[in-house]
Design a protein around this nucleic acid. Structure first.
Length: 269
DNA sequence: ATGACAACCTGTGGGC
DNA sequence: TGCCCACAGGTTGTCA
């Protein structure tokens, strides 16, 4: 699924049709997602959407009485469809909007979520998250200090949402390749100089992916139903056994923290 | 505290 | 062609 760039792409795509518009109806066909969709979500009916916000891989939809929060899980997508469009298999939730569109949530694996938080209630899902990678909070001092004493592989460390949010498996692989860092290196043993190189690379990779509309591996589509184009630029992800684009060495694929990890044994030390 | 691993669920692609 | 297994963008919970 969607990593940060795909979520950001989705948020930007749906925003014009949501912000300032009223949710006239909420239809839940399948409430059994990552967490059950609670009946309280029906409180959205009649509410005006005041603003949208992305935090980590969550999309927050703010109204006067509370916030609805989407998470796309591994296989989720939000699309805008015309009223009357027949729901397909795995189209679990609709929001009918005064903008004349329907916001439709599709998610075969159902690892996604739609959560409701009334004003004043604590939203625990976001409370323990690390900084956003594209803000200045994610800087050298922060990451270097956080890494000290960690024996965990640097790739697993980067994918831990308590360290930094939004760096998923694709972009962790890509960033480490571009930074010349071997994914298996213990996070605590990497020098400050190397982290200094890595940080801007992470930001740049995510930025570029957002510009390209995200990465479509098999089924990610933006709110307009179009795929993202960053997949064409992937240097290592999904290329295990193929040649490194820099040095022609055969890329190695291993498992790290249950996730496919690809690196060049020559370029990444 | 840390880190390794299973679990949630469905679809797809490769190997035989 | 068909079957079975491994694997897929994420996150949480459990266990040692």
């Amino acid at each position: 699924m969607p990593e940060l760039p795909e979520v950001e792409t989705t948020k930007r795509g749906i925003e014009p049709y949501l912000s300032g518009h009223t949710i006239s109806d909420v239809i839940v066909r399948q409430p059994s997602l990552r967490w059950p969709v609670e009946d309280a979500i029906l409180n959205l009916k009649g509410q005006v959407i005041r603003s949208l916000e992305r935090r980590s891989k969550y999309i927050l939809v703010h109204t006067d009485i509370g916030t609805a929060t989407w998470h796309l899980g591994m296989s989720g997508s939000l699309r805008l469809v015309e009223p009357g469009t027949e729901p397909r298999k795995h189209d679990h939730i609709d929001w009918r909007l005064s903008s004349g569109k329907i916001l439709r949530y599709h998610d075969p694996r159902r690892f996604g979520a739609l959560l409701w938080t009334a004003n004043g209630d604590e939203f625990t899902h976001l409370s323990h998250l690390g900084p956003e990678p594209l803000t200045d909070d994610f800087d050298l001092d922060y990451l270097f200090n956080k890494s000290r004493g960690k024996t965990q592989a640097v790739k697993t460390f980067l994918m831990d949402g308590r360290v930094v949010v939004g760096v998923g498996n694709i972009y962790a692989n890509e960033s480490l390749f571009l930074a010349g860092i071997r994914p298996t290196t213990p996070a605590g043993k990497i020098s400050k100089t190397r982290y200094q190189r890595l940080i801007p690379i992470i930001k740049q990779v995510l930025d570029q992916a957002i510009t390209q509309g995200g990465t479509t591996l098999r089924d990610f589509v933006g709110s307009d139903g179009q795929p993202g184009y960053f997949a064409q630029q992937l240097l290592v992800y999904g290329r295990g056994g193929e040649d490194c684009k820099t040095c022609d060495t055969r890329l190695k694929e291993i498992k790290l923290g249950q996730r496919a990890t690809v690196y060049c044994p020559k370029c990444q030390r």
